[in-house]
Design a protein around this nucleic acid. Structure first.
Lengths: 222, 222
DNA sequence: ACTGTCTGATTGTCAGACAATCTTCGGACG
DNA sequence: CGTCCGAAGATTGTCTGACAATCAGACAGT
């Protein structure tokens, strides 16, 4: 009963930012869509200044972009940006994998737990969005192996960008079970200390992710 | 004359944020100092809403911290945070060093140029603050080898945190020439493809930086 | 010395206002 | 026919003023 009370304490701005964030992740707002301050203030029932602050939060997260005197629009990731995001993930997760031997038991346990979660959801045939969450949680847990608050924060940020890009891709149909196997193999290599194998598996996996994302976004339909 | 004008064309908020940022880097504001919105609005001659937005920018950069209903204070880095910052730098710069062979000629040239700049300033006996700038620029150029916009942005952010921590340390008297030699050795190893040597040199250098920073901050004077 | 309360200061939020700037649209002009 | 121009409307950027909620410190009572 103590914790629940603590969580209620959120500001108007935080709540507004969260509502908008979820709308973005849900794909309610297509990339390029302008977010009008007054309209949002009316819809959310809050003042324009609060909307402005909430947008500032989302801008800092890279989910939306401010164009001076023209407003805020939902960020669109072009192939170059996707490549950049993948490059960041590669660096972060490689660092995480490298830190496996020296990581805390908790951090290693979290990797195993998120993997188990991921596999379970995929086998049960859970909704795609849920599987994606578990998938991203696994990658996050890799970065958490470094034990660095800041690196995890960066991972969360790029993760949010990916979620945004994924929001409009019901088309992105990957073989979930196969994907799970790929990740399980990665974890196995971690467990056996096959650092080299982990690194190459990461490169391969992220490379795959990039090409399939870019293809789905920019080849199948312009 | 074009650039200067371009810089003038910034918003009130951007200018306010920049003024505060420079004040922080100059050490005008000690860690823990509260930044009062009304006072700042008066001093800067702008509205409270603009001050609020500018503070939001600095909060996103980690230079100041908002405590709900209590205001914004200049961030203080405890040893754990310093360690975290160093960990991030190690990851980023290792990634940069790793990317040396595949980096663009421009990126490699930038590393050489910043090194030359750094050495020149140290030999001439330039003011410490200027040498520090060159030093940080060199490390930034390492990260830029990755070619990733986002990684460089992260590097800039932690660099800003370091600048803030350094702002109050006129005491931190390092042998500039010796430092330069250390960095030059690192660059030499990059040029000769001694990846292993680069990695260990980076670890050593950053480790040194961390211990001397922590010592100066927390041992010499509580 | 401990505790409850009061007061002043500060933040969080809103509403309204207005200049500056952007977009749009229709018309003038070459 | 296409381009350029200007007016109208919309939107942002910024300021001012306001007020409830919350916090810090003083103060008084036990």
């Amino acid at each position: 009963m103590y914790e629940s009370l603590a969580l209620e304490h959120s500001s108007t701005v935080d709540r507004a930012a969260e509502v908008l964030r979820q709308a973005l992740f849900a794909g309610d707002l297509a990339p390029g869509t302008p977010l009008r301050e007054i309209a949002l203030a009316d819809q959310l029932g809050i003042g324009r200044s609060s909307v402005r602050e909430a947008l500032g939060v989302l801008i800092a997260e890279g989910l939306v972009t401010r164009i001076p005197h023209r407003g805020v629009v939902v960020t669109e990731l072009d192939p170059a940006q996707i490549h950049d995001v993948v490059a960041v993930r590669l660096v972060l997760e490689t660092a995480g994998a490298h830190a496996w031997p020296g990581a805390t038991d908790e951090a290693r346990g979290a990797v195993r737990a998120s993997m188990a979660d991921y596999r379970r959801l995929a086998q049960v045939g859970a909704p795609a969005r849920q599987i994606t969450e578990a998938h991203l949680a696994f990658h996050r847990s890799l970065v958490a192996l470094t034990g660095s608050r800041r690196l995890v924060a960066v991972a969360d940020q790029v993760s949010a960008e990916i979620r945004l890009a994924l929001a409009h891709l019901d088309r992105l149909r990957l073989n979930a079970v196969e994907q799970v196997a790929e990740h399980q193999a990665l974890l196995d290599r971690l467990e056996t200390g096959d650092t080299e194998g982990v690194a190459s598996a990461l490169v391969a996996h992220l490379d795959d992710a990039e090409t399939s994302l870019v293809q789905t976004l920019y080849v199948a339909e312009p």
